[in-house]
């Protein structure tokens, strides 16, 4: 399952699950992540799952690489399929105003707007990881016909709530930030909420997300809340 274990600096363990990026590999990462989270070792101060890696950051005052690596070997990993992961519905408005890369996508994908949206909305997406900026979910896999590269020159500011696609993935900009993904719409949903004391993010690794289309009027109404 784990292909390679290395140190990243003097206070992190780097678990490599292999080069392939697919749901199966990622499920192994998330299963391992959930198992470690449940084990709740006091030496561990952060866990960062991504497509095919898990990074375990630890407190160098309490342990070290070799010691913790050994301790983790004894933790029983349970499978993600045995866990209940959430199914989340997210409204998206693909009105012209928010569909920032409409022209680019029509040209690149050789599809019309209806075809793009039909292919995008007709699928539920698996959350591979959350991060980069607080709460940003990396969702996949999008239809093969929608896959394209990122913008040559990234936008300096992508508006908060923008939904983007690039290669096999889709994401949501939880904050205004720089970014190079192709923007197809915008959600009024608050994906990151620091007032939620237990879990401030709506979408966690392993969750399933389905987008549903809303009109601009509905968007404006929901956005006021």
């Amino acid at each position: 399952m784990i292909k390679n274990i290395l140190n990243l600096g003097d206070s992190s363990i780097y678990y490599d699950f292999g080069d392939e990026i697919n749901k199966e590999t990622n499920k192994k990462v998330i299963s391992f992540f959930n198992s470690l989270k449940k084990a709740n070792l006091e030496e561990i101060i952060n866990l960062t799952p991504s497509y095919n890696k898990l990074i375990v950051s630890f407190d160098l005052k309490k342990t070290n690489f070799i010691e913790l690596k050994k301790k983790i070997e004894d933790i029983k990993t349970f499978n993600i399929d045995e866990q209940k992961n959430k199914k989340i519905k997210i409204p998206i408005c693909c009105d012209e105003e928010f569909f920032l890369d409409k022209e680019r996508l029509i040209k690149k994908l050789k599809l019309n707007v209806e075809e793009i949206l039909e292919k995008y909305l007709n699928k539920s997406y698996f959350c591979y990881m959350t991060g980069f900026v607080a709460g940003m979910p990396f969702l996949g896999d999008i239809s093969k016909e929608l896959r394209t590269d990122r913008l040559k020159t990234p936008r300096v500011k992508v508006p908060k709530g923008s939904v983007g696609i690039t290669e096999q993935f889709s994401n949501i900009y939880t904050f205004e930030s720089p970014g190079g993904w192709n923007i197809i719409g915008k959600t009024p949903c608050k994906i990151f909420n620091s007032n939620n004391k237990v879990n401030p993010v709506l979408i966690n690794p392993g969750d399933n997300v389905h987008f549903y289309s809303i009109s601009k009027n509905e968007f404006l109404k929901l956005n006021e809340k």
Partner: peptide, 30 residues
């Protein structure tokens, strides 16, 4: 590379070849 976790103190080399050292408020993946 495929985006993956980074930690405080990581030195990344973007395509332009100028190093960036990740500090305490760094993006969690890169």
């Amino acid at each position: 590379i495929r985006s993956e976790g980074i930690v405080k103190g990581t030195i990344q080399i973007p395509p332009d070849g100028d190093p960036i050292i990740m500090l305490s408020d760094h993006g969690t993946i890169g």
